[in-house]
Design a protein around this nucleic acid. Structure first.
Lengths: 327, 327
DNA sequence: TTGTAAGCGTTATCAC
DNA sequence: GTGATAACGCTTACAA
């Protein structure tokens, strides 16, 4: 790896001049510029970002903290973030927190140690001291924060929509799978659904679950049909759980959507490949990732935001795990 | 953020001494050490990794280059890598190449600019000049390289197994979905299957596809049943394609596994949640990620490897998209 | 228009 | 045992 010094020598100028052409600031004579540029090409020189980062006290790195990249919802989000960052010359340091406070703190710490210029975090404890005293731009994504920029979907409305769509399709004994209590979006989905059902005076059952992980999804699905065998409509807390429910229904010989209808949440890529394809509440994960990245970049570059909180609308995606009905 | 200088001042010693206790080398008196450690705690000081990286010309960062994190196979792999790296105090800079040479080069370039100590890459052109002249430890994963360390599954054997399992289950008109020609693992799966079928003198049809992406999977599935309506056994190039085939079969009213049997590849987390749950050739993505990370760390830390190429065995995971058969 | 030199926060070498 | 100090590769006053 050649350094700025090598380039300077090769071009017969000082490092300051090289730096000037590199950063396009200060005066530099046309001829000098050409010489320098030639030298840069000759040596195929690229600046050492670490040295830059040290001097400027800020890098071109952004920290991305996700609960778990294996949860199929997050790769899309991450990809949205990555695409925008990449296009703007920022790179991503990525970490999985497993919703674990300690891991989260450790990552934030190493982000700081690496001079990241900002962080995008999907965490539930956004008010935590950890973030409030962080001297860095932070954008929360898939989570909402009152005082910090955040990008999230209208989960509560999603819950309401799910409930209404099942009601329209004739369900009268609905089960809601609640999702982990410590995950705010899950709670809002649940509350929205419960609210809409109560408003119509419709009875519903609730099944608690403790995680969004696939391994926990299957026992939950079993439990559901065991506890509430008469259920004719199920609102799952996400598409993973919904898939498990679908698979369990198949196992039990319950026909979907004839005997029981199912609605998921998220609209992950695979939900339309299920059999039957899963009706679900769409959250635009990729776009949310892009939006969060855009906001963070604005923040980093000192632009002021008109809006701190971006709420994405959700929408019902009708597939075949719910019945056809005329609109 | 406090610096080593602040700590030195606070403790009444020189920065050299602080550095000594930080790195645990050189002599330092017990009492001095205590003073320094107290100062570190008081100021909640953590060393600036960027400065370290500049001086030592190596960071604690590792570059991870994946084709596309949205392909459900890679999050598992990435998570395996991440867990091991995290446990060894390395952080990950992550990039998506989309199997695109230019993007790949750009990423490698920025990895270098950020002083990464090594890279893990899942690329098909492992012989490329790009890597040969890279002065860094590189481990290829999910791809095999003759001269560089690599971690991969026995794709060819996977193909053979898939073919044999379908034959055992009575399939006599098998279709193989070939997968993108430029992806070596896909080709090996294909070749393995074709080989096993030819060896038995069984006729088979081949459907070419150009990508592993979900959006391309559906048209491929349609095309398959259109072109080869009599097929009674399908070997898909991965679980995504298999899911699409499953969904298409459902749409066409073809019963799985009675009318047509399907085998996928990868055993991504969701395949067991499909209906019917998908029989597939398991590749231990998470473990392969861990292994690759372990090898890279060995390389970084200068240990010698007994083995350059780690081939993971694959295995048939029997679920319900294939018929039961007595063993 | 260009060069010199200080400084970013560390580590390592050499005196003392 | 400990402290100055040069060096890592860069940017930016400031001088020339």
């Amino acid at each position: 790896m050649s350094t700025i010094k090598d380039v300077a020598q090769h071009a017969g100028v000082s490092v300051a001049t090289v730096s000037r052409v590199l950063n396009n600031n200060g005066y530099v004579h046309e001829d000098t510029r050409n010489k320098v540029e030639a030298a840069i090409r000759d040596l195929s020189y690229t600046p050492n970002e670490v040295a830059r980062s040290l001097y400027k006290r800020k890098s071109k790195l952004v920290g991305l903290l996700l609960p778990d990249i294996m949860n199929p919802y997050f790769p899309e989000l991450a990809r949205g973030v990555e695409d925008v960052m990449q296009a703007n010359d920022y790179r991503l340091i990525i970490g999985n927190s497993d919703e674990n406070k300690q891991k989260e703190m450790d990552y934030i710490q190493t982000f700081i140690q690496n001079n990241v210029v900002g962080v995008i975090s999907s965490t539930d404890d956004s008010a935590a001291e950890l973030y409030t005293k962080l001297q860095l731009p932070v954008v929360f994504v898939d989570r909402m924060s009152d005082d910090r920029p955040s990008v999230y979907a209208d989960s509560r409305e999603g819950g309401r929509i799910a409930a209404r769509e099942l009601l329209r399709r004739g369900c009268r004994s609905i089960s809601i799978i609640q999702g982990p209590v410590h995950i705010r979006t899950a709670q809002e989905r649940f509350e929205g659904a419960a609210e809409a059902l109560s408003a119509q005076g419709v009875h519903y059952d609730v099944l608690g679950t403790t995680s969004f992980s696939i391994s926990d999804a299957e026992p939950s699905a079993e439990e559901l049909f065991r506890k509430y065998p008469d259920t004719d409509g199920i609102i799952a807390s996400n598409d993973i759980i919904a898939s498990a429910v679908l698979a369990e229904a198949y196992r039990l010989g319950r026909r979907v959507p004839d005997d029981v209808q199912i609605i998921g949440f998220d609209n992950i890529l695979l939900s339309r490949l299920l059999a039957p394809p899963l009706s679900t509440i769409h959250q635009p994960a990729y776009d949310m990732g892009r939006e969060a990245a855009g906001i963070l970049i604005s923040l980093i570059e000192g632009r002021v935001l008109e809006q701190n909180n971006i709420q994405f609308p959700v929408e019902f995606v009708e597939r075949q795990s719910t019945r056809k009905v005329e609109s």
